[in-house]
């Protein structure tokens, strides 16, 4: 296990990182050299991590800690058979790409231990996932210089928007395992986008692809009152409030 915690971010960390496409290995080295802070990089330790004070400092404003994994859903659970599942990257890329399930899950994957915060106010610490970084996916397509925004789309019609700078450099991944088991359909399986540095509605369940654009297009909740960026450390819950 080489779990990297990225959920405990404070604002600004992502912006200080070089946003050019780099392999996650190099990114990891850069991040550990320059930005090691407690609760940011490193696997949970038996000696003090997980204490009450640590848990408090990792809980964003207005959130409460939970140990269960609440199921939130805006619609019926899609159940796409794996032999008909695929994942695309399209839009402002040199060569659009589609992976089958077998191809996708053969990509270089890693374990991620991250803290997750939902806009409905629960926060869950040390959630363990396995999946592939968005960096790895983008390396396969080569982004055009005009690509600045991403919109993720899911089975069932859900969408969410993110600036590319919010999902590069190990800030986002597509997971197909949670807690050592295949990701359950009610939690977004077979595969879910996970963006620990943003409220959990940005972590699209049942994700099937990412489209790259030169302009920002609001997603399902962003287009109806929820904040466009959704940084839980800044309590960016609603737009215009």
């Amino acid at each position: 296990m080489d779990g990297l915690r990225v959920g405990g971010y404070r604002r600004g960390v992502g912006h200080r990182l070089d946003t050019r496409l780099v392999g996650w290995r190099r990114t990891l080295r850069v991040m550990t050299e320059r930005f090691v802070t407690r609760g940011f990089v490193g696997r949970p330790r038996p000696d003090g991590e997980g204490t009450a004070g640590d848990a408090r400092s990792r809980t964003p404003p207005g959130q409460y800690l939970t140990t269960d994994f609440p199921v939130l859903s805006a619609g019926p659970t899609p159940r796409t058979p794996l032999d008909r599942w695929s994942f695309f990257i399209e839009g402002l890329v040199r060569e659009p790409m589609t992976w089958t399930w077998d191809e996708f899950t053969a990509l270089p994957a890693r374990d991620w231990t991250v803290d997750i915060s939902c806009v409905t106010k629960w926060t869950k610490l040390d959630m363990r996932w396995r999946g592939v970084s968005v960096d790895t996916l983008f390396e396969a397509v080569e982004l055009l210089p005009t690509a600045a925004f991403a919109i993720a789309s899911s089975d069932g019609g859900y969408t969410t928007n993110l600036p590319i700078s919010d999902i590069l450099n190990g800030q986002a991944f597509v997971a197909w395992e949670y807690d050592g088991k295949p990701l359950a359909p009610e939690h977004g399986g077979p595969a879910r986008l996970v963006v620990p540095g943003r409220y959990f509605w940005k972590s699209a369940k049942w994700v099937r692809g990412i489209r790259l654009l030169d302009r920002d297009v609001p997603g399902f909740w962003e287009g109806l009152g929820y904040h466009n960026r959704g940084d839980q450390w800044l309590e960016e819950r609603y737009s215009g409030d």
């Binding site: 939130l72 619609g75 806009v119 009152g225 929820y226």
Partner: peptide
């Protein structure tokens, strides 16, 4: 009515 979500979503009983 899907109420366990950031907002409330009301879907068609025929086509969802």
């Amino acid at each position: 009515a899907y109420v366990r979500a950031p907002g409330t979503v009301l879907r068609c009983p025929a086509c969802s």
